[in-house]
């Protein structure tokens, strides 16, 4: 162990990607596992998938695709439980209005990851309530236009911004068909540990990626889903689109759902019923 550390510090000056000792060990273990898994795959093809999924602590993989189903019939008028929960969970409530900024401007400049929208059909007059957030497209326009690649899609389908390389050009906001993105217009003094946020970068809903990544087994939920359930509505269902056993996949198989702006063929990860 200490030998490895000495080595890495000796080479540390000229190489940026220093491999810590732990990672080397993990890599060895991974190689070993791969060999075993490859062997197993010949015998039992189903086993490999199970192995890949079990490594919850490694890189996320495209064996999963996170998504949502929103039942607009269950979404209540005037209820903003999901919005409030999102703001607390992701520290959006810690972004304060600058003193000299007038209210009407602040209303258009404050970050919003999720919003409630009330619609009325022009012909029938039927009223629909629903939340809109980043739709986590399979082919996200925001990622196509981003000059630095800061806007990216994770292997597990979550579209997010790597704010370490975001230059704040806002081209992604121009490209997003859902107005799902917000630019941080001011200095932010306080953040939550798992939700960094700073001036001059763009951000949007990341499906509570910090919850997914810290998954200790059991079912992962998003803050908005929890809040919606706690309010007794159960309009939001989050889960793995690719896992046929997930509640989400089953619900999607049972009923017709639709994408907002399906005409753009973005194959969104967030689907709606009863619009």
């Amino acid at each position: 162990m200490s030998d490895d550390l000495n080595k890495s510090s000796a080479h540390g000056v000229d190489s940026v990607c220093v491999e810590p000792a732990l990672e080397q060990q993990q890599r060895r273990a991974f190689l070993r596992n791969t060999v075993i898994a490859a062997g197993a795959a010949v015998v039992a093809p189903g086993l490999l998938i199970t192995v890949a999924k079990a490594t919850g602590s490694g890189d996320v993989t495209s064996n999963q695709r996170w998504g949502m189903l929103i039942d607009t019939d269950k979404c209540a008028s005037g209820c903003t439980a999901c919005v409030e929960a999102c703001e607390t969970e992701n520290g959006i409530d810690l972004v304060v209005q600058p003193k000299r900024n007038p209210d009407h401007l602040w209303e258009q400049q404050r970050p919003q990851w999720i919003r409630k929208v009330k619609l009325q059909d022009q012909q029938t007059g039927v009223v629909t309530n629903l939340p809109i957030m980043c739709q986590h497209c399979e082919k996200p326009p925001c990622c196509d236009v981003c000059p630095t690649g800061a806007s990216f899609k994770r292997a597990d389908g979550i579209v997010m911004v790597d704010r370490h390389i975001c230059i704040g050009c806002r081209y992604c906001m121009m490209a997003c068909p859902y107005k799902a993105r917000s630019f941080i217009h001011q200095h932010v003094a306080e953040q939550r540990s798992h939700a960094p946020r700073g001036i001059g970068c763009v951000e949007s809903c990341n499906l509570c990626a910090h919850r997914i990544d810290r998954d200790q087994g059991g079912e992962v939920t998003t803050a908005c889903q929890d809040a919606c359930a706690a309010a007794g509505h159960h309009a939001i269902l989050f889960g793995d689109l690719k896992d046929p056993e997930s509640a989400l996949a089953k619900a999607l198989a049972e009923q017709t759902s639709r994408q907002i702006r399906a005409d753009l063929e973005l194959n969104t990860g967030v689907r709606y019923t009863n619009i």
Binding site: G12, V16, P20, Q26, S57, D59, A155, D162, H164, D213
Partner: peptide, 21 residues
């Protein structure tokens, strides 16, 4: 001496690959 390198390296893994280990 090298904390910035370690942090930069691991942050890219954590953010871009969702790897929290």
């Amino acid at each position: 001496r090298n904390h910035m390198r370690y942090l930069n390296h691991d942050r890219d893994r954590a953010v871009q690959r969702g790897n929290r280990s």
